[in-house]
């Protein structure tokens, strides 16, 4: 145990940071994909790590962190843009992963093309992110894998409001993933064969992973036993103890 301390003096046990300040609300929700030539992102990236480590002397030689680079020239992305016109809104590469922003209206068509023509037969993951202040409030993220393309995976990102086209017709495995997103975020997937709640129970009120859902939960008793737990029995919307994230 003592050896541990000698080798990493500047990395204490991670627990003491538990009282660290709240996560700042993100002003720009996504990394800005920029053309490679622009000098501005380098300055932004250099400024970013500054508040994190003011005391550590090893800060200056630290690499400036990964930043997204434009990936719309990649053959895969170009082929998708050509096959489904208007589907690709933007494309960037970040920490070795390619992300394509897709027009939600063309999502199913784009997925169909990627599965049939490019061999992305395996839908790894489908999830969503809540950007509370943004206008299309949610991002639906899909991660695709092709068994013929080695390690390369492709992430599709569609900015949607409370409804999104369903890709269950393309990959069967999207069924439960979309149900989970619906349950947790309230994004309705149009064309889903069986859009019911999956992790919470039928009749649960609210969508737990939305940023405005309180962390300690809601008065769930009201949903099951309305006569025993009248509405407002738990921490109501005006309760000061009700915590809301960021």
């Amino acid at each position: 145990m003592s050896e541990d301390k000698t080798i990493s003096p500047e990395t204490p046990a991670p627990e003491p940071v538990s009282k660290a300040p709240e996560t700042p609300a993100p002003a720009a929700p996504e990394p800005r994909p920029v053309p490679a030539a622009a000098p501005a992102p380098a300055a932004a990236a250099a400024a970013a790590p500054k508040p994190a480590v003011p005391a550590v002397p090893a800060a200056p030689p630290k690499p400036a962190g990964p930043k997204p680079t434009d990936a719309s020239g990649k053959p895969l992305v170009a082929a998708l843009a050509a096959a489904v016109p208007g589907s690709v809104l933007d494309a960037y590469e970040f920490v070795g992963e390619t992300t394509v922003k897709v027009d939600p209206g063309k999502l199913v068509e784009a997925c169909r093309h990627l599965k049939d023509a490019e061999g992305f037969t395996y839908l790894v993951d489908l999830t969503a992110v809540d950007w509370k202040e943004r206008d299309p409030r949610f991002d639906v993220l899909l991660l695709l894998h092709s068994f013929s393309r080695g390690q390369e995976r492709l992430r599709l990102k569609a900015a949607v409001g409370e409804s999104c086209p369903s890709v269950t017709g393309v990959w069967l495995t999207a069924n439960w993933m979309e149900r989970e997103v619906f349950d947790m975020y309230g994004v309705r997937f149009d064309g889903h064969p069986d859009l019911r709640r999956i992790l919470t129970w039928d009749g649960f009120q609210g969508h737990p992973l939305r940023k405005d859902f309180p962390v300690e939960g809601i008065d769930t008793g009201a949903a099951i036993y309305p006569e025993r737990y009248p509405e407002g029995g738990g921490p109501g919307p005006k309760d000061p103890n009700r915590k809301v994230l960021s």
Binding site: V17, P26, P49, G65, P66, P68, L141
Partner: peptide, 13 residues
């Protein structure tokens, strides 16, 4: 590892 872990904004899997 930095003392306070603050990864840059972005997605990763």
């Amino acid at each position: 590892v930095p003392r306070v872990i603050k990864p840059p904004a972005g997605e990763a899997y």
